[in-house]
Amino acid sequence: MSFLWLAEGAATAAGEQNAVLFHLFGLEVTSVVTTEWALMAIVILFFFIATRRLERVPKSRLQSVVEFAVESLYGFVKGQMGEERAREFVPLIGSFFIFILVSNYSGLIPGAGHVAGFAAPTSHWSVTLGLALVVFFATQYYGVKKQGFNYIKRMFQPYIIAPLIFVMNVLDHVVRPMSLSLRLYANIFGGETVVLALLVAIPYFLPITTLLLELIFGFIQAFIFTALTTVYLTEATGEEEE
């Protein structure tokens, strides 16, 4: 009987996730939005505390951890697009990584998706599509800003098959946010669904295996999103590499 109860609970929880909590300036505020606010507050508070008393040689463990994280992110972006552009784009790319990582892991906390006002943001397409659209517009903006007319011109090269290649390029750019957002959303949402299915089948110990995998996937998906963002921005802002 308990299985039936669990299955029923799971079914209603999926519907409740999209329930509107309250209205703010005429906009619907759902559990996803409140969780996003909470995560943003936590991240901002954490980095505020970690960088409050900076020292040249870090004495506190917190500063060492944050320095390691920021340096790895910076090193990765620098390896892809070079020193000069890395300094400009690390704030954007790093924010994406940290926010997606925290969002992915928030789905592993017990109660996520079942308690009102608490649901993993990246398990909803609306959130990931928003993130991907930011990447899309950033790519176009920085492409035109850095390369000017060349950015448009490169979409037609080689000129022999200009009409065809232009259509292909436009299609490529339009599909990118779709694939970027669907990949992240489907991974996190799919993981949650599998955990739920295993929970309904055998409630004890079996879901742990998938939860462990989710720990790895959460990191990998955040990394893939940032890596693809880096690749797109590198490609848009110039072909030369040092």
Partner: peptide
Amino acid sequence: TVPLLLGLAFMEALTLFVFA
């Protein structure tokens, strides 16, 4: 590592598109 993970992600995405 990076090209490998990106390649794997693109393949993974095909199944996930069907799932979505």
